[in-house]
Write a protein that binds this DNA or RNA. Structure first.
Length: 204
DNA sequence: GTTCGGATTATCT
DNA sequence: GATAATCCGAACC
């Protein structure tokens, strides 16, 4: 049996995105990329939710070719490029509702050598700590994977872990946005070395 | 057609 | 922590 085959179904993603973002970290969900002869997997340790009516959401202003995938059914991928880098999101809620969960970091579980082929860096921690980095390590690009059905268990999917677990979850504002900074929609495992940024120090 | 800015990263101090 | 790199997409004219 193929490892990491407990594929999360569309129903899991047909819910409010903040709850999904939190649960993916809490349950230790796995992001899996497989082709013949190779498999790459990582535990999701950092996510952000982007909601409808949220000024930081790409679909806040209007429906455009760029954000089209976010309006699709739950459990699809929304991949976009920024500063010449790809970011990977999972579309949430029903078709026609534009919301998503951004996966910002994973902790490698399998296929480190394959990741290093795609992203030659000295330190393993630099393979997948950050949204652009993990896309490179997993071979995720917009052309192939924007709109990809992640619930089919083919090529790229999200799985629940082989053994149930409860990961601690910390909450903070989202990273790198100018609007919606007051919302606490970033979720991460505070014990993971693969989280992209430590919490900002409180301002006195 | 032109302008503007970004859900980042690498590299510098 | 600060900043340059760098280019695509969206908005506006």
């Amino acid at each position: 049996m193929m490892p990491f085959s407990n594929v999360l179904p569309a129903a899991f993603f047909d819910r409010e995105p903040a709850a999904i973002a939190r649960e993916l970290v809490e349950m230790g969900a796995l992001l899996v990329e497989a082709q013949e002869g190779s498999i790459v997997a990582g535990r999701i340790v950092e996510t952000e939710a982007y909601l409808t009516g949220d000024p930081a959401c790409h679909a806040y202003r209007s429906r455009t070719p760029r954000n089209e995938a976010m309006f699709g059914p739950p459990g699809r991928a929304y991949v976009y490029s920024i500063h010449r880098v790809y970011c990977f999101n999972i579309v949430t809620e029903g078709e026609g509702v534009a919301s998503a969960v951004l996966v910002r970091a994973v902790e490698p579980v399998a296929g480190v050598e394959r990741m290093q082929e795609r992203r030659p860096v000295a330190a393993v921690v630099d393979l997948t700590r950050g949204p652009g980095k993990l896309c490179q390590a997993f071979g995720i690009d917009r052309e192939t994977f924007n709109g990809w059905d992640l619930t089919g268990g083919e090529r790229l999917w999200v799985a629940s872990p082989p053994a149930a677990r409860q990961v601690p979850v910390a909450v903070s504002p989202r990273i790198g946005i100018s609007a919606g900074q007051d919302l606490l929609l970033r979720f991460y495992d505070p014990t993971s070395l693969f989280v992209s940024r430590l919490p900002r120090q409180p301002v006195p």
